[in-house]
Design a protein around this nucleic acid. Structure first.
Length: 578
DNA sequence: GCCGTTTTCGGCCCGACTGTTTTCAGTCG
């Protein structure tokens, strides 16, 4: 059973308990356990088999037993029992916006309604208002919620790469406005999550209303819902909601911290503060003993007041950053300037848009000292493959070009496909001629977890494979990762000296942040690559860097922060020769 | 139901908004 399924079962158990009016802390505990399972980089089923479930924060003895029973029998007895008490559709109703468990239960008990169909009819017939505490407005809201088409409810999330440039454009425009003082992006965009729902911007201004109006009149803004002294709420032409909050300079730090989140981080921060007699909110930090509220003009002050080291936004996910901050053990996160090269890109030889020469020139302009050209291998397909003889000619061409370059070097490489049986798409005689080999899965995704894991482990056994590209094959918002035992792959990478790539293509970001953290912490060499298909997409490396930072990764854990000579020494081929 | 630099028992984040209330419960972020 996959982590997502176990997490869903725990969330359902939480919903059922909420309907049953269990103490809220039990419900919260199930939800937290669900989250811990969902975010676990390791396969929870395996952890259960090893009796390691309680290592996950939020899972104690009782929930561990429930998960074990779930894995053995396919069910959690407590959930089975509650499902007899409440019809399954009732749980669905609590997911309607504005309709929580308390209201749903009341409606069920008073009117016997447990389905969306019955609920709609009752609302239309104005029967809901007979339930104590409900009135005509509730009927109206329920009808509105039921009218939202299913397609609109689910994934209103978008890729960071779609949202970030718009957020930055807006922030730049606001900064340039004479009414503006400080302007910062907040929310998930600032934390550089894989996907985002909307854009939050916090500002201080000498004329708040003028700044709000400036946002409302930007060309990329379509609708301005509200515009006032406290800020503005608008929607861009491509449908992204933007929330501007204009606050007083004294509170800028508090509000920025609050609205950067994540929710989980803030909850943990506040719980920690309470133990020290402090109460954190977006308005300030209240001190029980002194009986006064401190406001903070900067985020650093907020963390300072709590006695914490400053926590970078990318780390604020409630994944141990608070404990690390308390212990002064936060990582020094990698930055763009730490990278000396890019080890994954394509040219017109496969499916890229620019020549090798153009890619080299663009890489040089970025300040890199090396770039590996890694076109697709012989059987990639779509006519975009590079046959062995062509690849060997490319190697020669690289050697020629390098004579003309100064310090900068092109590396002759390949993104060689890992075939279903774990073999590689070129013979060793060809691979051994290359300066850099990425091996990636591009076909037969629908294998069992065991087979896929063995396939990749086999590829790592090759002395010519330097790194595995986009390990799990996921495409954000489009395609789930194929089943894979990532912990086993990490072990294999360590055993064979194979590096693992964080692919910066914003549709992939694969390794994910949690997998990358697992791998790097285990000691696997990480490479961060753009997978650029043109000179204009080398910059997508920033999304790979964002994932690396969210994975707590320091420069020393990343192979392409090294000068070329040292990178070469890390390759299996040169290690074997030593 | 979890968890421990005040605790193995007694705590468990903070505030806004809404709709129904006449002082607040439910829901949301």
């Amino acid at each position: 059973m996959r982590n997502a399924e176990i997490a869903a079962a725990l969330d359902e158990l939480a919903d059922l308990n909420e309907l049953d009016q269990a103490v809220v802390y039990r419900v919260v505990a199930y939800r937290q356990a669900a989250r811990a399972v969902r975010e676990s980089p390791a396969a929870v089923e395996q952890m259960a088999a090893q009796g390691r479930l309680t290592e996950l924060r939020g899972i104690g003895k009782t929930i561990a037993e429930k998960i074990e029973t779930l894995l053995e029998t396919g069910e959690i007895p407590a959930a089975v029992k509650l499902k007899k008490k409440f019809p399954p559709a009732l749980v669905e109703l609590t997911r309607l916006p504005g309709l929580g468990p308390k209201t749903a239960r009341k409606i069920y008990e008073e009117l016997g309604i447990s389905s969306a169909k019955d609920l709609r009819r009752a609302a239309k017939e104005e029967r809901l208002r007979s339930v104590p505490g409900l009135g005509p407005k509730v009927e109206e809201n329920i009808l509105a919620a039921l009218a939202v088409p299913a397609a609109k409810k689910g994934s209103s999330r978008r890729l960071l790469s779609h949202v970030l440039p718009i957020a930055e454009e807006i922030a730049a425009a606001l900064r340039a406005h004479p009414a503006a003082n400080e302007v910062e992006i907040a929310g998930s965009v600032r934390r550089m999550t894989d996907t985002c729902k909307d854009i939050d911007i916090i500002a201080t201004a000498n004329d708040p209303r003028a700044l709000s109006e400036a946002l409302a009149t930007l060309p990329l803004v379509q609708d301005a819902a509200t515009v006032g002294d406290a800020g503005a709420r608008v929607v861009t032409n491509n449908g992204i909601a933007v929330d501007l909050r204009v606050v007083s300079p004294e509170q800028f730090g508090n509000v920025l911290q609050h609205l950067t989140g994540s929710k989980q981080h803030n909850v943990q921060l506040r719980e920690y503060a309470v133990k020290r007699g402090l109460h954190v909110s977006e308005y300030g930090v209240e001190d029980d003993r002194a009986g006064r509220k401190h406001t903070c003009s900067s985020e650093h002050e907020v963390y300072d007041l709590l006695g914490l080291d400053y926590i970078e936004p990318e780390l604020r996910e409630g994944r141990g950053e608070l404990e690390a901050s308390i212990a002064h053990r936060l990582p020094t996160l990698i930055e763009e300037s730490d990278l000396r090269g890019d080890l994954h890109c394509h040219t017109t030889a496969s499916d890229g848009r620019n020549s090798m020469e153009q890619m080299a020139e663009a890489a040089r302009k970025r300040g890199y000292s090396y770039l590996a050209v890694t076109d697709h291998s012989a059987s990639f397909g779509f006519g975009n493959d590079v046959q062995a003889d062509e690849l060997l000619r490319q190697v020669e061409r690289v050697r020629e070009l390098n004579r003309g370059f100064g310090r900068f070097k092109l590396l002759a490489g390949s993104e060689v496909s890992i075939l279903p049986d774990g073999s590689l798409d070129y013979p060793d005689s060809v691979l051994s001629e290359l300066d850099w080999v990425n091996a990636s899965v591009h076909s037969s995704f629908r294998m069992s977890e065991k087979a896929m894991t063995e396939r990749i482990l086999a590829a790592m056994e090759s002395p010519y494979v330097d790194a595995i590209g986009h390990l799990t094959g996921r495409l954000l918002l489009k395609r789930d990762p194929y089943p894979l035992d990532v912990e086993r792959v990490v072990e294999g990478a360590l055993e064979t000296g194979t590096m693992l790539e964080i692919n910066g293509n914003p549709d992939r970001r694969d390794l994910s942040d949690t997998h990358a953290r697992l791998a790097a912490a285990a000691g696997v060499e990480i490479v961060i690559n753009s997978d650029a298909h043109g000179t204009d997409t080398l910059r997508l490396i920033r999304f790979g860097l964002a994932t690396a930072r969210r994975a707590w990764i320091e420069p020393s854990q990343v192979a392409n922060t090294l000068p070329l000579v040292r990178l070469r020494r890390l390759r299996k081929q040169s290690r074997a020769a030593r």
